[in-house]
């Protein structure tokens, strides 16, 4: 475990906490894409298939449980909680799941390191995670009214991905034979999707104005 990986995981954890704070405490999911949250639930469900069969460390198991548990509880809140679901912006959150899930599944079946169920599912989760933020970014652009917590949530998610890239660079130079092209390319694409958002985030921060994405 290096500092970039730890910082990345902590940023990811912080993003989840910010979102849970908004949903659980303020009872609002305004500006949050249910589609993106459902895709994340699918990402973690397909990636952590080994959670109870292969023990790595206490840290790994706990983090996996947190990411799985939070992903599914966020989906539950937005769909079922009677106060939270009222604030859900259904009319603007119209991205179709299968436009994202199906290509990722096909790509995972075609391009993977090894053709076993677990490795293909893991690869699928990498491809899916790379593009799962798209419905959220589309929603932000459509509603044009981004509250503080939503903006911070997306920023933390993007920061987490950027830190993971630094982690891979570090591991590449410090560990022998550490080469994972599929992970790196999908991770890079995922981070690049945030580039536009980052630009406007820093602009609003620098000029001390409300974050707004151009149409």
């Amino acid at each position: 475990m290096n500092i970039f990986r730890l910082a990345g995981d902590m940023t990811h954890l912080a993003s989840v906490l910010v979102l849970l704070l908004k949903i659980h405490t303020i009872k609002s999911c305004a500006g949050i894409s249910l589609k993106t949250q459902e895709l994340y639930a699918l990402v973690f469900a397909s990636r952590y298939l080994d959670i109870f069969t292969h023990y790595v460390s206490f840290y790994n198991t706990v983090m996996k449980l947190i990411f799985l548990g939070s992903a599914f509880s966020i989906v539950w809140y937005i769909r079922r909680h009677k106060l939270v679901r009222r604030s859900y912006d259904k009319d603007h959150d119209t991205f179709r799941h299968y436009f994202i899930v199906l290509p990722c599944l096909i790509l995972a079946l075609l391009i993977h390191e090894k053709f076993t169920f677990r490795v293909v599912m893991w690869t699928f989760s990498l491809y899916l995670e790379a593009v799962a933020i798209l419905p959220q970014l589309v929603l932000l652009q459509r509603t044009r009214n981004i509250d503080n917590l939503t903006g911070q949530y997306v920023f933390l998610l993007g920061a987490y991905r950027a830190l993971y890239i630094l982690n891979w660079v570090y591991r590449y130079f410090t560990e022998p034979h550490y080469v994972h092209w599929i992970t790196w390319i999908s991770g890079l694409i995922q981070t690049l999707l945030y580039a536009d958002f980052f630009y406007y985030y820093f602009q609003s921060w620098k000029n001390n104005v409300k974050l707004e994405l151009p149409a």
Binding site: N60, M63, H180
Partner: peptide, 10 residues
């Protein structure tokens, strides 16, 4: 190696 990657990162 791919199994290793599956296990050790989140």
């Amino acid at each position: 190696p791919v199994e290793q990657a599956i296990h050790d990162e989140l």
